[in-house]
């Protein structure tokens, strides 16, 4: 299951540096899109279901 090649604790900093110079741009993009969609979905319910259902309290 655990391939020793990937879990090598001795990944040295130069190797990391060579691979990770773009990180975490991908996480910003993916998580950013997910959260933006979440806010949009929330706003749709707020504007098009909640407010039209009228005052209450």
């Amino acid at each position: 299951m655990n391939n020793p090649a990937d879990t090598d604790p001795d990944i040295t900093d130069p190797t990391l540096a060579a691979h990770l110079d773009e990180a975490p741009s991908g996480a910003f993009a993916l998580a950013g899109i997910a959260v933006a969609l979440l806010l949009v979905a929330w706003a749709i319910i707020y504007l098009f279901v909640f407010l039209p259902r009228g005052p209450v309290g």
């Binding site: 990944i11 691979h19 773009e22 990180a23 991908g26 993916l30």
Partner: peptide, 13 residues
């Protein structure tokens, strides 16, 4: 974010 960024390190490696 932090978990996505961790998975990103895996994908990039």
């Amino acid at each position: 974010f932090t978990v996505t960024a961790s998975m990103e390190t895996a994908g990039r490696l």
